[in-house]
Write a protein that binds this DNA or RNA. Structure first.
Lengths: 123, 123
DNA sequence: TAATCATATCAATACCTGCTCATATGTTCA
DNA sequence: TGAACATATGAGCAGGTATTGATATGATTA
């Protein structure tokens, strides 16, 4: 509605728009649709306790699917599904070694974001 | 399963447990159930494009519900529902002033986390 | 090659989420 | 007080998500 005829009319005709000074401060920070979705997707990756635990487990080491399933006391299927999701969002990657698939975090950004958020919880 | 009889038996009897060395690195980082949930909830708050845009809009200013609804081109009801959610998760708070309710971020942690994540997107 | 192990995927289900519409609450002002 | 405005809330629906159980794929080893 920011560019709707209705709002423009208000601005031009009678100054009734609620708080133009505040809106002016807000507008420069607004992400476009694409950025908002990408940010939401990033956070969505970490918005489930199981995935949080997976990321935590991978902070300092790689692990195979079965290790994760045992460690987190979840079914192999459940872990595999969540790993695929994390893979699709480019938070984890894996290497094959014989029968095993060893998963690890893709880079330090994920680690940073996760650790920092963890610290914020204490406040 | 980490403490299940089955796993203990493996450790004691035949060393078949998949990767004890890797698991040893993972275990110290594991959050308990409560921390995992709290972290997931924090990320869940930011896991929706509408809420991302709300947080972005509030980075440098407070805004009332109607400002937000106009700015983001969403219904008053939709914004109000999302604000309640963000309120419940303690990411935003508000002050009443006459008929208006001015919402703002609760503290700099939210701002920090958001901005930092935004930067990470570029990589 | 056959049996086995590790992982991935499919289908089904139960639960959760985000929005709308209608309505309620609460504030201001005539 | 009553009308108008700003916000909050509840019910309901459509779409999304997390898990399970069964099965498929793919690598290893006997």
């Amino acid at each position: 509605m920011i560019n709707s005829p209705n709002l423009v009319a208000k601005e031009v005709c009678d100054g009734q728009e609620t708080h133009p000074d505040l809106l002016a401060k807000a507008i420069p920070n607004l992400p476009d649709e694409r950025e908002a979705s990408r940010l939401a997707d990033l956070f969505k990756a970490l918005s489930d306790p199981t995935r949080v635990r997976i990321i935590a487990a991978l902070l300092n080491t790689e692990l195979c699917v079965d290790d994760l399933a045992n460690l987190l006391d979840m079914s192999q299927s459940a872990i595999s599904h969540q790993l695929r999701l994390l893979r699709n969002l480019h938070l984890v990657q894996f290497r094959r070694s014989g029968k095993h698939a060893f998963y690890r975090l893709v880079d330090d950004h994920v680690r940073d974001l996760f650790q920092r958020s963890r610290e914020h919880l204490d406040c």
